[in-house]
Amino acid sequence: MGDFVQLVVSGIAAGTIYGVAALGFTLLWQASGTINFAQGEFVMLPAFAMLLFLGIGAPLWLAFFAACIVSMLLLGVAFKRIIVDPLLRHGVIPLVIATLGLSVFVKQGIKAGVGALAYPFPSAFPAGQFAIAGIEVSYADLGTLLLAGGIVIALQLFLDRTMTGRAMQACAQNTEAARVLGIDVRRMTLYVFLINGALAAVAALLIAPSYLVKFDMGETIGLKAFFAAIIGGFNQTRGALLGGVLIGVLENLVGFYVSPAYKEGVALVVFLLVILLRPEGLLGKAEERKV
C-alpha cells in the first residue's frame, strides 16, 4: 500500500510538469489555432538560458526570472510575430509544418552551437524525503506538486475570474464576436503567447534537474505535453492538467507493477484510445467540422 501511494504521489508530481507544458499547448491552440510541435524545444531553450545565467553567477531564482523574460520575448513575441502571424492566414497545416521546422531548427541549432553533451541542473528543492503516515515523500516531488499545481490553478482562476482572462477566453471561443464586443483581440492573443513562454520556463525549471539539460531533452516532454493535451481535451485548459496527471500516475503504476519497458507506452495507449473513442478528449467539447 505504501508503494502504491508513493508511486501515485511521485506520478502526480511528474504529471503536473507535463500538465504545465500541455497547458501552454492548449492555450496556443485556443487562442490562435496553433498546434505547436516545437513545444518540447520551447521547454529545452529556457533550460539552456537558465544554465547561461547560472554560469555568470546568478542565483537560481534570478536565473529563472531572467529565463522567463527571455522565453516570453523569444518564444512568445518573436514566435508570434515571425512565424505565427504570417502563416495563420494559410490555415492550420502550414503552421504545423512551420513549427515542425522550428523544432528541428532549435534542436539542431543548440546541438551545433552548444554541443550534444548533457549538463547538470540544480534542483529548486532540497534533496531527501520525509514520511507521513509511513509513506515516504520526497521534497522534490512535494515542491514540484505545489509549484506546478499552484501555477496551473492560478492560471485557471485568472482565466475564469478576471476581465482580461475572460476576454482572452472570449477571443478563443469566437474571435469575431469578441472583436464586435470591443475586445482587443491582437493583444489578448499576444498575452497567450507570453503565458506560454512563461509556462515553458516553469516546466524547464522543474524537469531539468532529473532529465539533465541536453539539446534533445525536449523530445520526451514535448510528446508528453502533446499527449496530455489531447487526452485531457484539446480545447479545454482544465483538460491539460488532468491529462498530464493521468499520464504521470499511470506511467508510474505500469512501470512498477507491469513492466518498466512499456512505461513510455502507457501515455500512447491512453492517447490512441482517446483519439479513437473520444476524439474531443476527456473534458473536451466536440468541434464541428468547418470548411
Binding site: 508513493q6 511528474a14 506511467e251 508510474n252 512501470g255 518498466p260 512505461k263
Partner: peptide
C-alpha cells in the same frame, strides 16, 4: 529519463 520505478 525517470528511474523512480526502477529504484523503488
Amino acid at each position: 529519463l525517470d528511474f523512480s520505478g526502477a529504484v523503488l
